[in-house]
Nucleic acid binder design. Structure first.
Lengths: 223, 223, 223, 223
DNA sequence: CATGAATGAGTGTTCATTCAT
DNA sequence: GATGAATGAACACTCATTCAT
């Protein structure tokens, strides 16, 4: 996955790499750190293993990053800022632009399919971000501001548009609409992972369609 | 929270406390361990801090638990089996029994209010369980079998009843119904925590009502 | 082996058991200590294992012996004084008395056979005594004075008798005679243990006979 | 003693020092370990004392040796393979070659004198090897194969030669001849150490001569 | 007198960090 | 800049010894 990341463009931790350029060494170290953190979590990872995986000497790591914690931040924060965040909204944005005239139901299905692919590809990275954000406020802040809020915003914008178009109820808070569709969708993804037997042999697109339909028409039996 | 736990009645790790009785010392150690794990996570916690918090010598800990990991399991597994799991279903069960004749909408509201209180009370505990389950398969197993499956089941039973009564659509998988209401609800709770400013001055019960209403009637504008 | 030890009659370590009587508890502890020390050596043994093997509480041990080291001394010193030492000389003494008129060659054979049996029976005990004597001067003293010197003395007395009878050269130090026969014999025993394949299918008594014959007639080819 | 050891040329424990070169630090650690083990035995020695004696940090030890036990093996095994073993046979070999035409009696005397010096110089090392071989099969194996068997072999070869020359009885197992002279000699050495008063004022060479003479001519009075 | 839970100094070992080369 | 040996504080865990019951 990191191979698609062009370069870390914006901010950086500490005083190194202010230019936004990453040397080959730094790149190798961060890639290695991500691999190791992803497998064992931050606390259970050792700098010596990161060095080994990166193919550099242990001392070299501390020439680029003052502490182990700085490696964590230098790995995850740029990834959130430049990769997870943008990645989460860009494709969404394009998708919405290109399908502005499609009916709600179909656009939502496209969105969910796109999100599903995206999340699956990013899962190991997302997992470590979500886990470590619990113990490192710096991560939590960036996660909220650069990922969560952005995703919310594009969703909200989309929902508001459709609301204005008259395709969605306007007696309800858009926020709750988002909770509903997003929550239903994520819970479905999680339950597919936890209980894979339940989804065996089913058509994924068909299943997502049901989620969308349920969101739009509601659970109550029509009389 | 642990103060409400009467005694750990069922299983226990290793051969100690098979009777389900916890000595005062064991209780103190586990309570301290829970506190420390909750604050720092398992890996970053030290047995010496647990001992300090428990007010016992470090050696005492190892008289009761062979390894640090056993402390983790001995803390979280019984809590899941005897406290989180039952706590998650018991009150739900009673609630459903007592309100069998209430309309869907009202019962769901009662359920969500009850769940919200429950989750809020348990949050620190739930958080550490969810986090550590990522690194300890033993925890994941118990979490799935003693908590997740149980909660699902009571939900499903309830939804199926109402489906049979004709109050819910029967052209849909109950499982998806559950994903929808459960996901919408949890996402709402999470977003309240992450963005408290959004809920300020709002009536909680009123908000939950909207969630329920949205679930039942759907997001699409009625024509 | 300890079952044959009647009671520890003489000295005792510390102020307990001056009477020479051993309570049942003390007996059990010392027997257990001997077992454990014999298997793992003193340093690698733990008082908790001794207690377990003895079937008493760990605290009970320290009611009878002030320190772990005192257990070692209380176990091995009386055994050397009352069991190994006497055992090494008594049977020898009897054997010599009863066979005063037998020729040198035959008596020596009887002696070696008797010693071989004795050493084989005592080996685990002798081994721990010889090993720990290297690290505990108190043990070394008792070993020298109560075992080594005694064995030497009976040997020397015997050899001197035979020397006076004209059966042994009197131009040589009896001491050296003893070194020769004793050393040859012990080396033979050790090599039997280290290289058991070498003795397979051989008649033990015949082998000992060769040792004796070699000692008496020498290695040089007679012309 | 270690100062005479040039470098450890052959095998080594683990994957360090395969080249047979020892860094200064490794050398210091092993020398310190040998000192401490020699004084207190393996079990009673602590890695912290070894570090102190070696003049390095405790952590440094574990950069070179994975466990305490590996220190023991890395110390004693190469010493047996490259120092004790060869040292035990080399000088013997030369001695026999150079004195092939000397009479048995004189060669044996030279051998014993040489062995005596050798053993005296090596005694602390030999002692710890013999003691710890009782608890560590790996040590026992190397001791048997690289020391004991080698010494035996050179002895046996020598004795067989002399047997063929007609200087030793050929009606006897060479093995027993070896037990006899070797055992008598070692027992003499041991008794000199245990009872130094006995040898005071005596001429060592003269004493060894008696041992040899006794071995060759036997203890029986010639008529 | 016997117990065994409690102790805490000490153990072997790890690891983030430093620094001479 | 890169190295990797060295560090030493901290870690999980052990165990001889104590002492309230």
């Amino acid at each position: 996955m990191p191979d698609q990341v062009p370069t870390f463009q914006h901010s950086w931790i500490g005083d190194q790499s202010l230019s936004g350029e990453l040397t080959d060494k730094q790149w190798k170290i961060l890639k290695a750190a991500l691999t190791v953190f992803t497998e064992k979590g931050y606390s259970a990872s050792t700098t010596s293993e990161i060095a080994r995986v990166a193919g550099v000497a242990e001392g070299t790591i501390f020439r680029h990053f003052k502490t182990k914690k700085e490696i964590l931040l230098a790995t995850l924060i740029p990834l959130m800022q430049n990769f997870i965040g943008p990645g989460a909204t860009n494709s969404l944005h394009d998708l919405l632009l290109e399908n502005d005239n499609l009916p709600m139901e179909e656009v939502l299905l496209l969105i969910l399919e796109d999100r599903q692919k995206h999340i699956a590809a990013l899962w190991p990275l997302l997992r470590i971000v979500l886990l470590e954000a619990n113990y490192h406020p710096e991560l939590k802040d960036v996660l909220l501001n650069n990922v969560v809020r952005k995703v919310q915003k594009s969703f909200l914008v989309f929902l508001e548009q459709r609301q204005r178009k008259g395709e969605l109820r306007d007696d309800l808070d858009v926020w709750k609409l988002m909770c509903s569709i997003f929550g239903g969708f994520v819970t479905y993804l999680v339950s597919c992972t936890l209980f894979p037997e339940r989804e065996q042999g089913k058509n994924n697109r068909q299943e997502l369609k049901v989620i969308v339909e349920l969101f739009l028409r509601g659970a109550q039996k029509q009389t």
